[in-house]
Design a protein around this nucleic acid. Sequence first.
DNA 1: TTTCATCAGATGTAT
DNA 2: ACATCTGATGAAAGC
Length: 713
Amino acid sequence: MEDSTPVSGSFDKSRVLNVKPLRCLVPVFPSGPNFSSFPTPQGAAPFVCVTPSGPFPPGVAPFYPFFASPESQNPGAVPNQNAAFSFNNPNSISNAVPIASYRTPPSQYAADANGETGSSKRVTRSRAQSQQEDRSAQYLSSFSMHVTDTDDTSKVGRSKSGSRSKRTRGRQDINIASTDIDIDSVVENILASSNIPAFDMIRRTDADKESVGYNLMIYDFIRRKITQIEESKDAVPGVTRRPDLRAGTILMNKGLRTNSKKRVGAVPGVEIGDCFFFRMELCLIGLHAPCMAGIDYMGMKISQDEEPLAVSIVSSGGYEDNNEDGDVLIYSGQGGNYYRRDKEIMDQKLERGNLALEKSLHRGNEVRVIRGLKDFANPTGKVYVYDGLYRIQESWVDKGKSGCNVFKYKLVRLPGQSEAFLTWKSIQQWKEGTNSRVGVILPDLTSGAESSPVSLVNDVDDEKGPAYFTYFPGLKNAKPVDPVEPSTGCVCIGGCLPGNPNCPCLQKNGGHLPYNANAVLVNQKSLLYECGPSCQCPPNCRNRISQSGLRVRLEVFKTKDKGWGLRSWDPIRAGAFICEYAGEVIANHKPEELGSENEDDYIFDATRTYPLFELPGDSNEALKIPHPLIISAKDAGNVARFMNHSCSPNVSWQPISRENKNESDLHVAFHAIRHIPPMTELTYDYGMVQPDKADLRKKKCLCGSMKCKGYFY
DNA sequence: TTTCATCAGATGTAT
DNA sequence: ACATCTGATGAAAGC
């Protein structure tokens, strides 16, 4: 079997390190006193795949990134219909202070609520097809209401932004109605199947980490889904669909934004070092409102006059900024046509953002700084790092290209803030070799077994490494099982392509490629079907992501409190593949037969999380559960064996079936739940055990999350 | 493999 | 209505 090829012989036995690694936990999610507690069922992992309103149409999987509602945990329970569309309830946003751009007038809530009434019937329907039709009809009816609303509101002279927004939406709908209905129904499904109280949390004007995280998670999921659907259609070349903007608009129109009121200084729920991959994300969480402009400002009443003050800037290379120093930033003002090629460059004027920066210089207020950097994984894309608060120290006028005036502002980072941009710079130096990582024990503990090296690092104490094991990136003794849907594999010589109706591997995944172009998993599934040995597609096929090795630069490191852990030098996008769980497939996991106390520490047991896959109302899904699958990485394994448990994890696991001559090999792959900044520990939820395995030793959990169960297995 | 050119976008502010 | 440090894509240009 090609993926089980051992790489023995490459491990240097002199590296036997006689230290017992702990499988303990470090706090990765600091919880403040204002952390809102949430009705999360005890023992439920955050990535629960339950569906209160399934079954879903093809390609629409239920998505529960974080919060599962209590009633949805019980297969027998009737979903709370009132709750199901409470996000359309105008009362639920009464506490939010709308800014001028608030896009959703009450009339639209009414229209959407009507639509949702129809959707609640989905619960009792069993055929996806009828649901799809239902969705389309519902969509159309809600569309006609929008049109009516627009006319009404313009007649009575509603606020500009209100009427404009609906016109925008209407225009969008008309132009691409044929493709939009599908997307709209998908999005409605996502929103309807998401946990309800979370919507109110998202709309909070003073949010916390949880609500910001949930907002971003919904946004990213919708964006990925739109990308996937658009890809499957016969896309017009050269026409960009901008799924990032479309997903953002949808959430904006629903009022699903966090910290919508502008403010000076820190934004609640956003931490220094947080990273983002789209400007729209900054907008949705209230970190930086304009979706293009680099300077965000707000009017502030100072004595009787109101003057603009800058609240945040994005420095991402559009102008000639100087960001050589980690703590000082020379920022260029806006305007003067510096960002466009088709217009003549002019002098910048002291207006808009430039004026605001000038005022902020004299006022001395804090300005948030977001650094836009090149994304190593996506040459065409950027990654945005929130670098904390700065103060403007001085300003002057420079002569830029063509000798035109450019405003310059010197911003200095406030002391005492945790490292963010500096960390990125350090990592870049480690990679270039211009500076070396402190505490490196082994530059590559895989001894070349992986495409990318994995450092072993300890910069906290004297431990020389974890206990001996053989680095092995595949699965030993993978037992082929009868596939749920037999197939002899695909014949996509050039690789499987989205929208190909003849590819059996796509068909098994609901007709879509499960991964986006940048190797990002679109959504979790109870079982994902990748191409395998009996497929004729090449190894770099987009449906073989979990077989193509590590894509990020990882390090195994000694955690501050206990044990060894795993983290990445590179930022990881939400949904991105991280690694497989490698090791030896074993028949049974009997802890009493294992010797000393912690020998079961390197067991991955898919059955431990079995309750997560009891999908109410969708027995088909439940049947696909590939347990029992138990993998031991005690003697041989890869980086995955170092991932610690957390009750608020940033990584989730996904069962994957690989096509293999009418049989299939089961594997387990890990993906990022959300964007993960560099040097953040990677953790997943080890899950629960089945009742008959309750004799497993419980270990005390120290993850520090508000949702901590107190123990894990 | 980087850069350029092109173009459709969205939001918030100003007119 | 307008200004604006987007983001994908394809073409052209650096090594």
